[in-house]
C-alpha cells in the first residue's frame, strides 16, 4: 500500500523529471565533450570526435597548466583584494548610512545609488583615458581600483538595507553595556551582517572573475593578465591543439568549482536573497 502510494508520487514527478533531465543533458553535453577531448591527442580527436579513447594524454594538462597557473594566481590576487576592500569599505559606509543622521546624508547616498543606472559601457572609454593618465595601465591597480568603485555601488546599498533591518534593541543593549561605537560596529554589527557580507563577496567574486573587457584595455603584459583575459590569449595561442586547449579550459574552471563546493548553499541562498531586495 505504502509502496503504491510512493510509486504514484514518483509517477507524478516523472514528466517533470524527464524534461529537467533533457535540459540538463543539453546544457552539460558540450562541457562533457570538452572534458573528454582534453585527454586526447589531436590525432585521436580528428579520428574519433565523440568518444573517449585510450591512452589518456595527461601531458595535455601539464603543458596547459604551465601557462594557465599564472593567470589563475593573478586572478586570485586581483579578485581577492577587490573582495576584501569592498567588504571592508561597504560595511563601514553601509553602517554609517543606516545608523546615523548627519547633514547631506541623502545627497551623499543618492550619489551612490544613482550610479546603478549608469552603465559601464558609457564610462568605458573616458575611464580608460583617466586610468591611463594616472599611469595605472599594466598595473593591478587599474583593475582593483575600478572593480572596487564599481562594486561599491550595489554593495553599499545592500549593506545599508541589511544594517537597517537589524533591531535597535541589539545596539541599545551594547550601548548600555558601555560599548563605544567602534566596538559596537566590530563586535555586534559585523558578525550579525555575515550573511550579507558573504553575498557581497560572492557577487564581487563572480563579476570580477568574469570581467574581460576592462582587463583587455588596461592590461597588455601577459604576465599580469587575469584569468578571463589570459584564456582569450591562450585560446588563440593554442588554436588547433585541441587537447591542450581543452585541458586549459578544465583547469581554469577548478578555482570556482572549489568555491562552489565549499559554499554551495551560500551560493544559492545568498544570491537569491541579495538580488530579490535589489
Amino acid at each position: 500500500m505504502i509502496n503504491r502510494k510512493r510509486l504514484r508520487f514518483a509517477n507524478r514527478d516523472l514528466p517533470f523529471q524527464l524534461v529537467l533531465l533533457a535540459f540538463g543533458i543539453v546544457t552539460f553535453f558540450p562541457l562533457v565533450l570538452v572534458v573528454i577531448t582534453s585527454f586526447k591527442s589531436n590525432t585521436q580527436f580528428y579520428h574519433n570526435f565523440w568518444l573517449p579513447e585510450l591512452p589518456l594524454h595527461l601531458g595535455n594538462y601539464t603543458s596547459a597548466f604551465r601557462i594557465i597557473w599564472r593567470f589563475i594566481v593573478n586572478s586570485v590576487i586581483y579578485s581577492g583584494s577587490t573582495i576584501c576592500l569592498i567588504a571592508a569599505i561597504a560595511s563601514v559606509a553601509g553602517y554609517v548610512f543606516a545608523r546615523f543622521r548627519f547633514p547631506f546624508k541623502t545627497v551623499l547616498f543618492l550619489g551612490f545609488i544613482t550610479l546603478i543606472m549608469v552603465p559601464g559601457v558609457l564610462t568605458l572609454a573616458p575611464r580608460f583615458v583617466l586610468v591611463r593618465d594616472l599611469g595605472l595601465v599594466n598595473t593591478p591597480f587599474a583593475l582593483i581600483s575600478v572593480w572596487v568603485s564599481g562594486g561599491l555601488v550595489l554593495s553599499t546599498w545592500l549593506m545599508r538595507s541589511y544594517f537597517e533591518s537589524l533591531p535597535q534593541e541589539l545596539f541599545d543593549a551594547a550601548y548600555v553595556d558601555g560599548a563605544a561605537e567602534r566596538q559596537v560596529f566590530i563586535y555586534v554589527s559585523v558578525p550579525l551582517a555575515r550573511p550579507m557580507i558573504a553575498t557581497v563577496a560572492m557577487t564581487t567574486l563572480i563579476s570580477s572573475w568574469n570581467d574581460l573587457i576592462w582587463p583587455l584595455v588596461t592590461i597588455t603584459d601577459k604576465s599580469q593578465m587575469p584569468l578571463a583575459l589570459g584564456l582569450m590569449q591562450f585560446s588563440s595561442d593554442f588554436e588547433t591543439d585541441w587537447g591542450t586547449l581543452f585541458a586549459g579550459y578544465v583547469i581554469s574552471s577548478i578555482p570556482l568549482l572549489c568555491v562552489f563546493a565549499v559554499a554551495m548553499r551560500q551560493f544559492i541562498s545568498g544570491l537569491t536573497s541579495g538580488s530579490i531586495k535589489a
Binding site: 551612490f112 550610479l115 549608469v118 564610462t123 573616458p126 583617466l130 575600478v146 555601488v153
Partner: peptide, 24 residues
Amino acid sequence: WLYLALLIPVALLLIFEWLPAFSA
C-alpha cells in the same frame, strides 16, 4: 568622524564613476 568614514568610498566613486560619466 562620519564624513571621514565615507571619505574613501566617496572619493573612489567621484574619481572612477562620476568623473568618467560626466566626461562621456
